[in-house]
Write a protein that binds this DNA or RNA. Structure first.
Lengths: 349, 349
DNA sequence: TTTAGCACTGTTAGTAATTGAGTGCTAAAA
DNA sequence: TTTTAGCACTCAATTACTAACAGTGCTAAA
């Protein structure tokens, strides 16, 4: 009996927490006891709500901007709220259809798929959308082309299984027959390897040529460098959306957001941590990085059918409609999954 | 006699204007008559300076934020100031050396040259640097490669004389011999044409094939689309620098800057206007675009040895050290000229 | 356990007084 | 004729004070 009544109390307390956060997200103003009583049917008086809120404050979920103000959620409060949204609210069907329609102009290249996805995320959320491309190092090589541009310029074009295309110009004098031979050789030995492995392998493989053909060796070495230097890529859109938010008046955060936009590597570092996380992950305030202390990040990973290859999500204010945004991120990731799967199948011929 | 004394007066007036602007740029606060008297040796009393400033205000070069405040420059004031900086102050030699050193990690690819240049501009100015790539449509085709990836995927790689490389995946089933033939054909007919002309020509040229080979015709058409869809590119860095400026507290401008960062096409539109302008050009306030009403843009064009091909410069606050920045933009453009010239020569073998 | 009542607290907004930097104007000095 | 000193004036910025108000915590009664 004690058990039951205790759990009912707990249940009610958490309902109050939810209500406060929900209301705060909606209005942006600290939530007072009477406002709560009016907007939600607890059948409790403001006084009771007050004491419950005081408890929640003691527990660390709510806080006061000052004595005579209503409550606002702490990061821990948001966290508890988000954690309890276990069952992701599915987007209404027509909503999901709308997203799919956005993809109508479909493409076979992963670049544009991802950059489009980032735009869609930003457009539908009205926050900042991002998509991190499949981890470069894990990409498997599909093709290496060596194109002789002039007597001393070679264009290296690298194509991976996920559809990534990279190119780099190299200055070297090399005989066109040697070039052809090298190309065959590289393709035979490297196809199917991850970029990481390929870069290592190329050094080993090419030793055999060293004595035979100085220039070929050199070129192969360069190509190794090219492969090694391929960086992870990330697409980001809608940073200005967040700047435009009504309750956004902190220049520091603005600058930080702009910085992330300019230094993608830092952004990659931050969101890259979530690559191995299977579900939707919400990071509130400084949970992922102190720079983002006034923002929240919702991420999920996407896969190519076999394993997770990248991360996508949105960055928005802490005061955000988590349910909706989580559902959005979830939906988009599923759609991307679908596309990648199809692209993979098409490539397997 | 009257003439001479009049010109002396004018001379003095303009010295006052310069002093006010200079001081305002330094301090960021409205400049009063006594502050002026202290910091600059006019050998005039505050009262006299006051009346001179009043004249300058009547002439439209200065203004008052309010009755009892000092003077700040109007856009026209800045304009007169900038116009009078005819003789560009040369950067100190060691400064110029420093810039050159930044380019040490030299590369043959225009992409990285330009993106590096933009970073250098931003780094040395502490404002926003940008470099607009050579006008896409005017680029001359150097090479078209068609690489068969799988039975139904062709990777088109396009290389221009300025070193631009673009690629695009196309889905089509085509015989590899036909592919080779098409490649030869395209290279013969399109090499040396501008992208603009090439896109037009391809449609004409390919008609002949139409009856003969349906698929080849289709592919050529696609390639035409690819060529046509190549957009101008622009590199931009250091927008967050501007956001961090002490006297920068206007969210609207921040958002605008961020928008430009995200919608490069708009930025291209704005700075592209200055492609045909030979010298350093300074646009103050809304002179180039109403969005930038609180910023100034310093641009100059750069050339590949024959003709101007692109634009580079910096975006900063109106209150900016124009002399120094103009010198910087000037130096950098000269260095880029040098590189492009060298790249062009290397390519002419 | 819940609630009404009440004293208390801190923010906000509004008003008034004060200060100070800087102006324009005028009349005297150079 | 030009420059300067002097003075009255203006307006933003600061400070101080007040009243209104929203919301709390606590207590005692339901």
């Amino acid at each position: 009996m004690r058990q039951v009544s205790e759990s009912i109390l707990k249940e009610r307390k958490s309902r109050v927490l939810h209500a406060v956060i929900h209301e705060y997200i909606k209005t942006g103003k600290p939530v007072g006891s009477s406002a709560l009583e009016k907007s939600y049917k607890f059948n409790l008086s403001p006084a009771t709500l007050r004491s419950l809120m005081a408890e929640l404050e003691r527990d660390g979920y709510l806080t006061h901007p000052h004595t005579s103000a209503g409550r606002i959620p702490t990061d821990a409060g948001y966290r508890a709220y988000v954690d309890s949204l276990i069952e992701l609210q599915r987007l209404a069907v027509e909503e999901e259809d709308r997203i799919k329609k956005e993809y109508e102009k479909k493409t076979k290249e992963i670049d544009s798929l991802l950059s489009q996805t980032s735009k869609i995320l930003s457009g539908l959320s009205n926050y900042t959308g991002f998509v991190m491309a499949p981890k470069a190092k894990h990409n498997e090589i599909r093709n290496i082309e060596l194109i002789q541009i002039s007597g001393e310029q070679i264009l290296v074009v690298l194509l991976t299984k996920t559809g990534l295309v990279k190119h780099k110009m190299i200055n070297i004098c090399i005989d066109s027959e040697d070039l052809y031979e090298l190309k065959q050789f590289l393709n035979n030995r490297l196809r199917g390897l991850s970029l990481e492995d390929a870069a290592k392998r190329i050094i080993v493989e090419v030793q055999k040529y060293q004595s035979k053909q100085q220039e070929m060796f050199k070129l192969a070495g360069y190509i190794g460098n090219v492969i090694e230097s391929i960086q992870d890529d990330i697409y980001m859109n809608g940073a200005s959306n967040v700047l435009g938010l009504p309750d956004f008046n902190d220049f520091e955060t603005a600058r930080c957001l702009m910085n992330l936009n300019e230094h993608k590597d830092r952004l990659i570092e931050i969101v890259g941590q979530n690559l191995e996380v299977p579900n939707i992950k919400v990071q509130i305030g400084g949970e992922c990085s102190s720079e983002l202390k006034d923002l929240s990040v919702i991420t999920t990973s996407y896969s190519d059918g076999n394993k997770t290859v990248g991360v996508l999500g949105i960055i928005g204010p802490k005061r955000m409609e988590y349910e909706k945004m989580m559902a959005l991120v979830n939906s988009v990731s599923k759609i991307v999954n679908g596309f990648l799967l199809k692209m993979g199948e098409d490539n397997d011929d």
